[in-house]
Simulated assay, not measured.
Amino acid sequence: MKIKLTLVTVFCLLLFACPSSDDDAPTPIEITATNYLFEAEVTQEFYAKTLADLEQNDPNNTAGILEADANLNSYNEFLNNLIETVGIGVLPPPPPCPDSIVGELCFPNEGFLLMPAGVNVSFRILSENSEELAVVSGQPQTLPNSNGALSYYTYSFEAGINGPILLEITRVDENATLIYAIPAGIRP
């Protein structure tokens, strides 16, 4: 009887000491220079473009220019604080866009949409004629190694979507909803 009790005890210890299955563990992700779109940088680009457009096309609109400048400065401060929280080197800088894409914003047809934690973002890919080509949205997950400051979800569009497009972003946080469109391109 003593041997049976010892064997049962050893069996129980082995059973509970073994590591659990990794089936429930999230798949590790690797952010590379060419597999992500960082929403915060796109929003910063939108604010900068809005200010530049006002200064060039409506220089007498002092109130509009001051508001656009305040929005850009406030967002730059937010983005700098975010980068400081996350730490330098988490997001590798993307390479320049190919010459076939007008502008400085381009991203892959599949990858990760990154956003600040607490912000929910969706985006639509529109053709140059404003025809909807794809919609990307989802339930964000916390990005590993970002100190809880970034969230992400994966996206993928059909292979035929490439070249110049219009990127329409819907950004929702605790303060407001911002919807805007910005010219972009999908890397071939």
Rank of each mutant, 00 (worst) to 15 (best):
T62I: 02
R124P: 06
Y36H: 12
T85H: 14
F157C: 11
P144H: 10
G118H: 05
I31S: 01
G148F: 00
E174V: 13
P188F: 07
D22N: 08
E55G: 11
V135R: 12
T34M: 02
F46D: 07
E174L: 05
S21P: 06
L113K: 04
Y153E: 08
S21W: 11
P93M: 02
C18Q: 14
A33L: 05
L5C: 09
E104T: 14
D173I: 09
T32W: 12
I169K: 07
P26A: 13
G103H: 01
E104Y: 08
G89K: 02
V10E: 07
T50N: 12
R171E: 03
V136A: 15
A149E: 00
L13T: 14
M1Y: 14
Q141G: 07
L13A: 15
E158Y: 09
Q141N: 11
E39F: 11
F107I: 08
S100F: 09
A40I: 06
I65S: 07
N145E: 00
Y152E: 11
D22H: 13
I186A: 05
E132I: 04
S127I: 07
P26Q: 13
T50I: 06
T177P: 03
E131H: 15
L72N: 14
Y152P: 00
E131I: 09
A25I: 11
L143I: 08
I88C: 11
I65F: 10
V135D: 15
F107H: 01
A48V: 00
N61S: 09
P108S: 01
P108C: 03
E55W: 02
A52T: 02
S130R: 12
A134Y: 02
N57I: 09
F78V: 01
F123C: 14
T27C: 13
P188H: 02
E39K: 09
I101V: 12
V135W: 13
K4W: 10
N61I: 08
C97A: 03
N147Q: 05
A181Y: 08
A159F: 00
G103Y: 04
T27S: 12
N147P: 10
T154N: 09
G148K: 06
G163A: 00
S100C: 05
P26H: 04
N57W: 02
E67T: 15
